[in-house]
Design a protein around this nucleic acid. Sequence first.
RNA 1: GCCCCGUUAGUGUAGUGGCCUAACACGUCUCCCUUUCAAGGAGAAGAUCACCGGUUCGAAUCCGGUACGGGGUACCA
Length: 504
Amino acid sequence: MATNTTSPARTRFAPSPTGQMHIGGVRTALFSWLLARQTGGQFILRIEDTDRNRYVPGTEQSIMESLRWLGLDWDEGPDIGGPHAPYTQSERLELYQDATKQLLESGHAYEDDTTPEELEELRIAQQAAGKPPGYDNRGRYKTKEEIEASRAAGKPIVVRFKIPDLGTLKFQDAVLGEVEFDLSLLQDFVIMKSDGYPTYHLAHIADDRAMEITHVVRGPEWVPSTPRHVLILDALGWEKPEYIHVPLILGKDRSKLSKRHGAASALEYRDQGFLSGAVFNFLALLGWSPGDDTEIMTRDEIVERFSIDRILQSPSVFDNEKLAWMNGVHIRQTSVEDLLEPVAAVLEKPETEGGLPASVSRPVDRDYLKQLLPLVHERLKTLNEAAETLSFFFVDEISPDVEALPGRKSDSATAARSLEESLALVKTAEPFEPEHLEAEFRALADRLGVKAGPLFTPVRVAVTGSSMAPPLFDTIVGIGRERVIERIENAIALLNGAGPASDS
RNA sequence: GCCCCGUUAGUGUAGUGGCCUAACACGUCUCCCUUUCAAGGAGAAGAUCACCGGUUCGAAUCCGGUACGGGGUACCA
C-alpha cells in the first residue's frame, strides 16, 4: 500500500565540514540516499563550508569515508564532479552573490551596517526589559547614504532578508504534514555575511535550485527556519522542493546523541568491528519501518521497501545492544570466505588497538584462519571479538589460571589426574580428528567414572587458557597435537605447584 | 521567555475509530539442547497506549488543554 511509484527524486546530503560525522547525520544521509535510490533518482553530495570560523580541515574526507563505508554512494559530488560542479559552497560564491543581487534589486533584501557589538547591546537591553531578544529590523529604515558612509568608513555590511508582513505561513512537510508559522515572530535575517560568504539559508536554496534538487531531506533542527526558506524561494520566484524533516536520534538518556554515549561517529562503529550492512540495517530502522515485522534486511531490500510516508515524526533512542545483536545476525549470514579478510585485518591490527599480541607475526596465515573461523563464526557479535576469541590459536604461550583449571565442580587433584590421562590420550590418538578424539575422550570419562564436564573442563582451560572456548575437539585439532601436549604438560606442572615446565 | 515538533513495555517498532483482553524484535528471567561460551528451540515477566477532558454507540487511533521531552530562537550549519 506504500506509494513507491514516485518520480525519480534528486536528493542531496549537505554536511558542513565542522567535525566528525555524527551518527545522526549519517542516518539523515541514509534516508536521503534511500529516497533517491528507491525512486531511481540521484544522490548528490555537497559540502557546505560557508562558515570559515568553524571549518575543520580534513573532515570532508572523513565524511566521504563514512558514507562510502556504509555504501551510500553519490552520483555527483566534490570528488567526482558532475553537471553542476563545483560541489563545495566556498567555490560557488558567485551564485549566491547573484541571488543576493536579485533580492536586493527586487526590494526583498537590504544592506545593513549594524555591527555585532550593536546587536549585542540590543540583546542585553531587550533582556533587561524582559523582552524576547532579536534583531529589531532597524536596517530597514537606513538610507543608502548611511550605508555608503559606513562602507567608506570600513564598517562591516551584511545583507538581510526582509520578512514580509504576511501573517502566518504554512508549508507542507512529507513527515510532519502541514506546519503553520507566525511570521511576526521572525526578524529580518542575514543572508550574506560581511565576509562575503552567504549564510546557510541563502546558500542551500541557491544550490538546491541550481542542482535541481527535488526533495530536501534534513534534520528536524531545520523545521523552525523552513518558513524563511519558503520566503526566499517565493521572493526569487523559485519552485519549492518537497520537505522531509527526519526525526532526531537520541542517546540512552534521551538527550541528543553525543560523544559520551560511546561511539558517535560512523567510522568508530567500523573500527569497533561492526559490519557496514548491519549498521545500515539498524540505522534504517530508526524512525522508519517497512510496515511489517521484517527487521533483518539487506541494502537492496531496504531500498526496495523504503518509502517516506513510513518515516516517523518522533525521535528514537540509539540502542547499542540491539545493534550488537543485529551485527551478530549479519555476521552469521556472511560466509566464512567473505569474513576472512575483514577478520584477518582485525587480527593484524596492533595489539594496542585490539589486534593479536605483538609476539604473533603478521600477516596471519589465511589458510589457518579459514580453518578456525567456522569455530567462532556464530559466536561473534563484532569482528573485533575475533582477536580475543582466536588468540590462543596464534600465541605460543598461554597462561591458564590454576584456580580455573579444575572447573567449578571439581578439585585440583582430580583435574591433575584428568590431565595426565588426557595427555596420554592426545599423544596416541589416531586419527587426530575431532570425532575420533571426542569418542576417545568420552570413553576415557567412562573409564575414570566421571562425567564429561569434569574431564573436559581442565583440558579446555589447559589448552585455551579460558573456561569459555569453541567446541573442545575442534579446538584441539586446530591448535595441533604438539602444542596441545605442551600446554597440557604445562597445566599439570602448574597444578603440581611447579610453575610452567620450561624444559626444551 | 517565546515558537515549532513529539509522547504505545527499559529500547526499537506494529497499530490510522470496533478484529486491541495492544502485536513483533532487542534486552531481562526460566527451561530445553549441551563439554564451556554462543547459536538454536520453548516459555515468562514487563504497557492503566504521558495525563485530564471532549467527540462518538465505540478511541492507542479524532479534537482541546496540561505535563514531560526534544529542537529552534546567531554575521553556525
